[in-house]
Write a protein that binds this DNA or RNA. Structure first.
Length: 475
DNA sequence: TGGGGTTAT
DNA sequence: ATAACCC
């Protein structure tokens, strides 16, 4: 496949004397193995609680999946269309001026030869996405998904194992895989540098495995936390990888042009920060913590101000199987109950297939709508309720009709939200199955029995009102 | 703007 | 149930 060339290790001295001094401290500090912190996360022993995290980011994922499905598309400018948007496109199309989330009109105008495929059905993307996550889990089980095309892996433990396996003489032969951010000098006497280089080696192996086993290319970023790993993975863009050494962290975060480019600072927070006169990362770093806490709340304020320094202690949380399954459809107009029912039936039918394949059973069902409104478009409303236990039981068995009772429930939720006697105008319908539980054959007297709310005595008392606000629909 | 996901309040 | 975040 592609060459994962060894990038420059030579670099003129910046703060080399300071770096060397730090390195000596570290060399003495962390020699022993790993332990686990309060979250069960692996951290190296010796006081330096430094982790090695990789962020893996697939190149234009949907377009790659489409080109694998239909190899004739390879080499042509390709866009993946949902409704009237080109949600992603391959690099041939990008060279010709097509951007992500461009309207089909604009994209065709820019690039008349653009080939479009419909990507509204996410099934194949979802399946490939989980294959990637599973492949990464073979390296280390601690894998966190972010959307369909990104994964974080905590490599700390794997790296420490490999480092301790190093024979004498092998250390001096250690090389970096891919780019070193900021062309920083690599110091093999610095234990943090050594760990990150081993991380870059594992990242290269991961990308090689993704290509050989799944035919997918992507980027990787290796750094000491999720924020930095994610930021550095995007520095060299398609199909390359980059490692960030600690001394270049500030250069990386200062390279952001605006706080809105910081992962974790979204649309709303950006607007509120701008109202405070905060635009750059430096603005956020130097802004009064007290005032920021009063404006945004202590939780958000402290978190994002740490982010602005490149600090992020959030653990890589293993995603495991999905917490929910949902299907949605957007449209120009839905204004009758019959119309809504038909769409809901379509959504539910697909969901039942998915949940059946998963094996677990959803115990809650939710209906989400978006009402038409000229400006405030983003707001949604939802109603949810428990799925009756007799319906849950019939879920796996293809024998009984489970559609009818569930559509009935959904239409009650619908009428709870929408006054069907009045005119209405919806632009989106979505159905979500959540609160998934394994079908444990819990026997009396076992731990499982008492941990299964539907079985244990406390739930029979009907007081199981944790904090769920389910709307009551009569059967 | 699409068709998904997650966590916190 | 909603609001924020991520892709």
């Amino acid at each position: 496949m592609e060459k994962l060339g060894v990038e420059p290790e030579e670099e003129a001295g910046r703060d080399e004397e300071e770096d060397a001094a730090k390195a000596m401290d570290r060399a003495e500090a962390g020699e022993a193995g790993c332990s686990r912190d309060v979250h069960g996360q692996v951290v190296p022993e010796g006081g330096s609680s430094s982790r090695v995290i990789v962020h893996v980011d697939l190149d234009c994922f949907y377009a790659q999946v489409e080109m694998i499905s239909n190899p004739e598309l390879k080499g042509k400018p390709l866009g993946v269309q949902q409704k009237y948007l080109v949600v992603t496109c391959n690099y041939e199309a990008r060279k010709l001026g097509v951007k992500k989330l461009m309207t089909v009109r604009d994209a065709k105008e820019k690039c008349p030869q653009l080939v479009l495929v419909n990507g509204e059905d996410l099934t194949r993307y979802r399946e490939m996405s989980y294959k990637v996550t599973e492949l990464l889990e073979e390296f280390s089980p601690v894998v966190e998904r972010l959307g369909f095309d990104e994964n974080f892996v905590d490599l700390t433990e794997m790296v420490e194992k490999r480092r301790q396996q190093l024979q004498s003489g092998e250390l001096s032969a250690l090389t970096v895989w891919g780019h070193v951010y900021n062309d920083q000098y690599v110091n093999l006497h610095d234990i943090l540098h050594v760990r990150l280089l081993i991380g870059s080696q594992i990242a290269a192996e991961m990308r090689e495995a993704m290509y050989n086993q799944l035919g997918l290319t992507g980027c990787a970023g290796v750094a000491s936390n999720k924020l930095l790993a994610k930021l550095v993975s995007g520095v060299f863009k398609p199909n390359q990888q980059t490692v960030l050494l600690p001394e270049s962290s500030q250069v990386l975060i200062q390279s952001l042009n605006h706080v809105k480019e910081m992962p974790g600072i979204g649309y709303k927070t950006t607007k509120r920060l701008e109202a405070l006169g905060i635009r750059s990362v430096h603005d956020l770093q130097t802004f009064s913590s007290k005032i920021l806490e009063k404006e945004l709340g202590i939780s958000v304020a402290q978190r994002i101000q740490k982010l602005s320094f490149g600090e992020d202690n959030s653990p890589v949380t293993p995603s495991g199987p999905p917490q929910s399954f949902s299907e949605e459809d957007s449209f120009k107009k839905c204004s009758s109950e019959v119309e809504a029912k038909n769409k809901i039936e379509e959504l539910l039918a697909s969901l039942l297939n998915r949940v059946c394949q998963d094996g677990r059973k959803p115990h809650t069902i939710r209906l989400i709508i978006r009402r038409y409104s000229p400006e405030n478009h983003c707001s949604r409303e939802s109603r949810q309720c428990p799925i009756p236990s007799h319906v849950i039981q019939k879920l796996g068995t293809g024998n009984y009709d489970v559609m009818t009772p569930m559509v009935d429930i959904l239409m009650k939720l619908f009428r709870n939200m929408v006054n069907v006697k009045m005119p209405f105008h919806l632009t989106l319908l979505s159905v979500c199955l959540c609160n998934l539980k394994a079908l444990t054959t819990a026997k009396k007297g076992t731990i499982d029995y008492y941990l299964t709310p539907s079985l244990s005595t406390t739930s029979h008392s009907g007081k199981r009102s944790f904090k769920m606000k389910d709307t009551h629909v009569e059967d």
